[in-house]
Amino acid sequence: METIEQIISSHPLFAGIEPAYLHLIGGCARNVHYDPGRYLLQHGAPAGEFFLLRHGRVALELTGPGRGTVTFQTLGPGELLGVSWLIPPYRWTYDAKAIELVRAVSIDAACLREKSEADHHLGYELMKRFMPVLVQRLQAARLQLLDVYGAGR
């Protein structure tokens, strides 16, 4: 049986992380699973955790009256779900639904924020690992905004 720390260290987000930090993060983590159709997080709710996805895919959705539900991104194994826990007011800005059976590691946000305040080296380590994901998603959002596959202007 893998320990939670082994699971975390084998996830790309935390690849190669120092054992001391791994131990700190592991202290805030637990294994979770969601059946297809269940929501991992919902727009407006407190962002109390984030997920390291291990199995199954998740759809990120926004719903508007009269517009139905638009999925703007899907995430899968090896990817990170949830960044709103990093910045106040710590609330989710979209819904995340399990499309398939999802297995993930949930990491408690308040726990990790507290440890990062106490140890800024840990906080810096987390920032270096979350920043590329944020930038990548920003770039992807720009590309989607450009609607490049359209038939010209």
Partner: peptide
Amino acid sequence: VDHALGAWDGHIGV
């Protein structure tokens, strides 16, 4: 696909 409404169960994103 860049975005989907309804019954699409494939990848969404760039």
